[in-house]
Computed example of a mutant assay.
Amino acid sequence: MCRWIAYSGTPVLLSRVLFEPRHNLIDQSLHSRMGVETTNGDGFGIGWYAQELTTPAVLRDVGPAWNNRNLQEVAHHVRSGQFFAHIRATTGTAVQQTNCHPFRRDRWLWMHNGMINEFHQLRRDLALAVDPALYPEMEGSTDSELMFYLSLTFGLTEDPPGAVARMVGLVEETARRHGVPHPVQMTVALADGDRLWAFRYSSEGSSRSLFYSTRVDSLRALHPDAEFLQEVGEETRLVVSEPLGDLPGAWNEVPESSYGLVQPGQDMLHPFQPQLPHP
């Protein structure tokens, strides 16, 4: 499986989030506490939005994150108000750049931790459901990228939660026809530069870990001496595969079978239920 971080809020240097916390993503790449694999060294990627651009930048590589000088260089010089970071542990597909997260199309970023069970059995049927106009844009061989393009096919740009629900519904229905049990295991992050969605779901009802940060104003009251909390605005949020540190009260588990929306103003948390796509 994998580990990931999604940040939304006050623009900060990427290094403040990726390298400075005690249990940062680089530490998780070597010493994950909650992942299936302790080490996540099958590639990494970051994606970030710049204020003057409508599409995000992406940097991906097949090597481990812990010794990549390009990642260090970018993270210490790029400031962003919304960015993703992902470290990969492959579930069977090749270690290659096109299989590293996050995946991008236009203004959208997508990253995933989990798997489609028996993906090799289901892959052909699922790929045939992708919009023919989108199919040539898929570059890699992962279930994660295919899940993204199925969601795009089912209307992600207009209705992200509904599109992801229809994607999961199709995967589960396809798996049922093939006799594959518990086909979906996922935590997914999705962003468009303004809003951030995070999904936690599995067909067996026992999903991989996912957490979101407590409101900054509440954390300031609990920890008035925490320097980072004084530098960011009250709408700053992080969604993470596992907590970045041990600050009491900082992290909340995303409920099973749910999704959250981080946006300007009021954040939202909703139940998540798969749907069958319309014929």
Rank of each mutant, 00 (worst) to 15 (best):
I5N: 06
R79G: 11
R200Y: 05
N67V: 15
A65R: 09
N252W: 04
Y7L: 06
E256T: 02
S213E: 10
A94W: 04
P224L: 05
T157K: 12
D225L: 02
N68D: 09
D61F: 06
L244G: 04
E37N: 13
L150T: 09
T55W: 00
E256K: 01
H112M: 10
Y7V: 07
A89Y: 06
I26Q: 10
V171R: 08
D131I: 01
H270I: 01
L126C: 03
N68K: 01
H270R: 11
R220H: 11
D27C: 10
M1T: 08
T55V: 02
L146A: 06
A191H: 11
A127V: 01
R33L: 08
E256H: 02
R16T: 15
G155I: 01
Q273D: 11
P11V: 11
Q185Y: 08
I116W: 04
V171F: 08
G35M: 01
R107M: 12
A189D: 06
R105Q: 13
Q72M: 13
E235P: 05
V74A: 03
P64F: 01
S202V: 12
Q96L: 02
F44P: 00
Q97L: 09
W4A: 13
V12R: 15
E139K: 13
T90D: 07
E227S: 09
I46E: 02
R208Y: 07
R123S: 11
T142H: 10
L14F: 02
N24L: 15
N113C: 14
H120G: 14
L210W: 01
R166L: 02
G193C: 07
D225A: 04
L128C: 05
D131Q: 00
S207I: 04
I46L: 05
S29I: 05
V216L: 04
F199V: 13
V240M: 03
L219E: 06
V74L: 08
A75G: 09
P277W: 02
